[in-house]
């Protein structure tokens, strides 16, 4: 089912005083936002029951533009606020949108514990390998040797693989796409939101302004096209050696498992506690 962009805009963008948006022309954030809205539309989630939480950075501004219950929190803390919202009202659909620095540097502790805790939440991480809003400093996903405003002599640290981190930390569902693979992204976000448990979707995205330019990766189109060449499917990646996988982006579903969900387990705790209280 294709959904006309105009219908999406009319239905989901706020009609009052939030534009122009802060994103640079060609930014991948818009593609992610479109995919999220299409997933919400396809799943027919009521706008009143939808909560979109974000942290700080370019990705953090996304909730401002969207007609949901929106929560623009502090840097790295989107998942902590989202945890409170979800536990207080489990009927709500809670999605956290974060950047790479947001989710895995300042918010790294919250991210791994949210994965371990396995609440019924969806986390979308737009990974553009840089701190864009603050002017292009290196992030936990900036590749070794690359240039940023705080690594002009070449970056000497190694990058996180956000998805592998999420798998290891215990997330129920982990998937990766790029902003080139918009159709795949639509499907992955839909699956993630349907998933009962903590679901992570990492989206490789372009910051041609702060990252691409300094690393001679071209403009937005060049960068987005490069994801097409670098992408390999999960099935293909499994057949390759680590050396062969170097410089490639594995896309698709990396983990999908069913585990007890703490929101539901807590209902059982409430029942046990209430029974004991009655006896006393």
């Amino acid at each position: 089912m294709t959904i006309p962009a105009q219908a999406l805009r009319h239905e989901y963008l706020r009609h009052n005083k939030t534009f122009p948006h802060v994103w640079c022309p060609g930014c991948g954030n818009g593609i992610v936002m479109g995919a999220l809205l299409r997933a919400i539309k396809r799943l027919d989630v009521s706008k009143d029951e939808m909560v979109l939480a974000s942290g700080i950075g370019c990705s953090g501004r996304m909730p401002t533009y969207l007609d949901f219950n929106t929560l623009h929190t502090t840097h790295g803390r989107a998942l902590t606020f989202a945890t409170g919202v979800k536990l207080a009202n489990p009927a709500l659909n809670v999605v956290a949108i974060m950047g790479d620095g947001d989710a895995t540097a300042i918010g790294g502790n919250h991210f791994i514990h949210a994965a371990r805790r396995n609440l019924n939440l969806t986390a979308i991480i737009i990974n553009n390998s840089i701190y864009g809003m603050t002017g292009g400093q290196y992030s936990p996903t900036t590749p070794f040797g690359s240039q940023s405003t705080t690594s002009v002599y070449g970056h000497i640290e190694h990058a996180f693989s956000i998805s592998e981190l999420a798998v290891t930390a215990g997330a129920s569902f982990v998937a990766r796409a790029t902003v080139y693979h918009a159709d795949l992204l639509d499907k992955l976000l839909e699956k993630a939101m349907l998933k009962r448990g903590f679901a992570v979707v990492e989206v490789i995205s372009n910051c041609h302004v702060q990252y691409g330019k300094r690393n001679k990766l071209g403009n937005a189109v060049d960068m987005i096209k490069s994801y097409k060449d670098q992408a390999i499917t999960v099935a293909k990646a499994k057949k390759m050696t680590p050396e062969e996988r170097e410089g490639k982006i594995t896309i698709g579903i990396l983990e999908d498992r069913d585990m007890p969900i703490s929101t539901e387990e807590y209902r059982k705790v409430q029942e046990r506690a209430a029974k004991l209280k009655e006896k006393a």
Binding site: A53, L71, T73, T74, R77, T80, F81, A82, T83, G84, V85, K86, L87, A88, N89, L92, N109, H110, H113
Partner: peptide, 12 residues
Amino acid sequence: AGMGAIVGASLA
């Protein structure tokens, strides 16, 4: 995280 969660819960 504790402080973040109580703000989220209060908003809900």
